[in-house]
């Protein structure tokens, strides 16, 4: 028996999965890293959390986490949304690892729908939760056909969708899960992160791993890999921007959540990345928007 069988939870292996399963998943991860952006099929296990709620990300994390890791889990950019709490608790119970909300000190970050604002370093791994790994799924529902299209780079049909958007809306009408081309070959679905976060995937020093449990696929972007969002030369990819800045910390470059504060429809904008926002506030940054009476949060208060 090795040290990994010592666990916090009676009767379960370290991080819940048995060692055979972890080995199988790690082999899939290695294949994925060797072929950036390619979806590697893997035999997903039923986990104590439902399919669709992050089992892919959880299995990836469970396969690579070690006792000395420092784990951060976020959902919608925040550490304390219910599912992030639930997943963090799962690993605390089954692996006994230390957890943190600090982006920079975490060695392993599992995320749903956002990339942290703070740039990552080469000692970190970012694990994304993926609902639908296949970017061609909406155009080609058959798995047998989409596999061939990837192998042969028959991607004309993806640009047809973008062409149509420009024809009908005057711009590309995809705001999240915006398709990218990885390392000049595979077109990949980055998971439902807002397109605002796409540029962060490009040449990132951290290792980025993607797990889709229900759909049984794993893929990866190795560090310092080219990741380009699809577009046309004359209709280049653009990220979202806000006219407002964060009401709490004043940030103008982060992704902002829109919060409706009263029945009159008055709105405030607040950083989606809670830790990023708190750090800025600690450093003394403040928003320049008056926060109205009756609003539940004051600057400097933990959200």
């Amino acid at each position: 028996m090795n040290e990994n069988t010592l666990t916090s939870e009676e009767g379960y292996n370290f991080a819940y999965l048995d060692e055979q399963t972890k080995r199988m998943i790690r082999r899939s991860l290695l294949k994925a890293v060797a072929i950036p952006g390619y979806q590697v099929p893997f035999s997903s296990r039923e986990m104590p959390l439902p399919y669709g709620w992050g089992t892919g990300g959880i299995q990836v994390t469970a396969s690579i986490i070690g006792r000395d890791d420092l784990l951060k889990v976020i959902d919608q950019g925040a550490d304390d949304t219910t599912n992030a709490v639930s997943i963090r608790k799962f690993f605390a119970r089954t692996a006994g690892v230390e957890t943190t909300e600090e982006t920079t000190s975490a060695t392993l970050i599992q995320t749903r729908h956002r990339i942290p604002e703070k740039p990552l370093n080469e000692n970190q791994i970012l694990v994304y939760q993926v609902p639908i790994p296949e970017p061609l799924r909406w155009i080609e529902p058959r798995e047998t056909e989409s596999r061939k299209m990837h192998a042969l780079r028959e991607y004309g049909v993806m640009h047809v969708k973008l062409y149509e958007d420009i024809t009908h809306y005057g711009e590309i009408a995809t705001s999240y899960d915006y398709p990218v081309q990885v390392n000049g070959h595979y077109i990949m679905a980055p998971s439902p992160i807002p397109k605002f976060d796409n540029p962060k995937m490009h040449m990132n020093p951290a290792l980025q791993l993607f797990g889709a449990g229900r759909e049984q696929r794993i893929y990866a972007i190795p560090p310092f890999t080219e990741v380009i969002s699809l577009d046309f030369e004359d209709y280049p990819f653009r990220i979202q921007q806000w006219k407002d800045s964060c009401a709490l910390c004043g940030s103008k470059d982060s992704f902002l959540d829109e919060v409706v504060i009263n029945d009159k429809g008055e709105r405030l904008f607040i950083c989606s990345d809670t830790h990023f926002c708190q750090e800025r506030q600690k450093q003394g940054y403040r928003g320049d928007v008056p926060i109205p009476e009756g609003f539940g949060i004051k600057p400097g208060e933990k959200q």
């Binding site: 028959e154 004309g156 047809v160 062409y163 149509e164 046309f232 030369e233 004359d234 209709y235």
Partner: peptide, 26 residues
């Protein structure tokens, strides 16, 4: 044909499949 995609996109698809990336040209 792709019946629910514009005539222009239908005609341009092969070009896009061969790497054409300028909307106005296509």
């Amino acid at each position: 044909l792709r019946m629910r995609v514009s005539a222009g996109a239908n005609v341009g698809e092969r070009l896009m499949g061969l790497g054409a990336r300028n909307y106005a040209d296509i």
